[in-house]
């Protein structure tokens, strides 16, 4: 059964960025924030809230619909799969996603969540959960 990432308890986040570092480490072989698919950011400083942006695993993903090159295709169970060879970094996909879950690495390639759950594994406060989802 495919899995998808879920922000189960957003108010428990302590803002440590361990999830982002885990994503880059596992999926991009780097230590970075920019290579992470999950996106943690504050707005108004750490004294205000912490925003947790993840791929919402849409069944009919608007990012895929928007892509003029067909580089993004719907993934079984929700979300999308990226074909890097087809992507020309036009960034249209990012605007199509309201939660702004798509951003770009230093080579301007979109960073796409593969719902592997490594971020949840390195969340010490159970903010994130990986959930099984129905196969369509």
């Amino acid at each position: 059964m495919p899995a998808k990432i879920k922000v189960a308890n957003p108010n428990r986040c302590i803002g440590c960025f361990s999830c982002m570092l885990a994503c880059s480490r596992a999926n991009s072989d780097s230590v970075s924030l920019i290579d992470s698919a999950i996106d943690i950011r504050t707005s108004g400083g750490i004294e205000s809230g912490i925003g947790i942006i993840v791929c919402r695993s849409c069944i009919d993903p608007p990012c895929a619909r928007a892509c003029p090159k067909g580089a993004l295709t719907p993934r079984n169970g929700g979300g999308v799969v990226l074909d890097k060879d087809l992507c020309d970094s036009c960034m249209v996909c990012a605007d199509a996603c309201l939660p702004r879950a798509i951003h770009f690495d230093r080579a301007d390639m979109p960073v796409i969540c593969i719902h592997c759950g490594i971020c949840a594994k390195f969340c010490s406060h159970d903010v994130l959960e990986i959930r099984k989802t129905e196969v369509l």
């Binding site: 880059s24 480490r25 991009s28 230590v31 970075s32 230093r106």
Partner: peptide, 25 residues
């Protein structure tokens, strides 16, 4: 900043990270 840091041996790094993270948490 937006730098991407690469390490000489990612597999050794990932193992060590897991070990230290476990001890911390």
């Amino acid at each position: 900043g937006t730098e991407e840091v690469e390490l000489p041996d990612m597999s050794a790094y990932k193992n060590m990270y897991g070990k230290l993270y476990k001890e911390v948490v």
